[in-house]
Computed example of a mutant assay.
Amino acid sequence: MRALVLSAALVLAAVFAPAAHAADSRLHITAGGTPDQPRVYSGAGKSVSGIDVDADWVILDGFTLDEPSAPGVEIRGNHVTLKNSRITAPHGGDGDGIRFFGDYIAIEHNTISKTVNRDGAHADCMQTFSSDSPPSNHIRIERNRCEKIDNMCLMAEGPNDGQGDGKGHTTDFLIKDNFCETLVASQTLMFEDVQQATITGNTFAAGPDHAIGLAIHSTGARVEGNRVDPSIPCEVGIDDSSREGYVGPEPACAP
Rank of each mutant, 00 (worst) to 15 (best):
R76K: 15
R243F: 01
D161M: 08
R99C: 11
Q127I: 07
D119Q: 13
I149V: 11
A9T: 02
A22L: 04
N226S: 00
S42G: 09
N110V: 12
G62K: 10
G237C: 07
E192V: 00
V116A: 12
A185F: 13
V247T: 13
K148D: 15
L60I: 13
L65T: 11
E67T: 12
K83P: 00
N110F: 04
G102S: 07
D229Y: 05
A254I: 02
L189V: 10
K83Q: 14
L4G: 01
D66R: 11
D239I: 00
D54G: 07
P71T: 08
R222S: 10
C180K: 00
E244I: 02
L189Y: 14
R26H: 12
I87A: 04
I107M: 08
P230K: 07
V48W: 12
A9D: 12
N151E: 13
I175S: 08
G72N: 11
F129A: 07
K46C: 00
L12I: 01
G72M: 12
A205R: 13
D66H: 05
D52F: 06
D61H: 08
R76P: 01
E181N: 06
W57Y: 15
D24P: 05
V11A: 15
G77F: 07
E157C: 04
P249E: 07
A13E: 15
G166W: 03
A206H: 03
Q127C: 02
R118W: 04
G77C: 05
S47P: 10
G162S: 13
T170L: 12
G32A: 06
P233T: 03
T81V: 13
T171K: 13
H28D: 09
R99K: 13
V228M: 10
I149D: 02
T171Q: 13
A55D: 03
H217W: 11
I149G: 03
D165V: 01
I107T: 09
D177V: 03
Y41G: 08
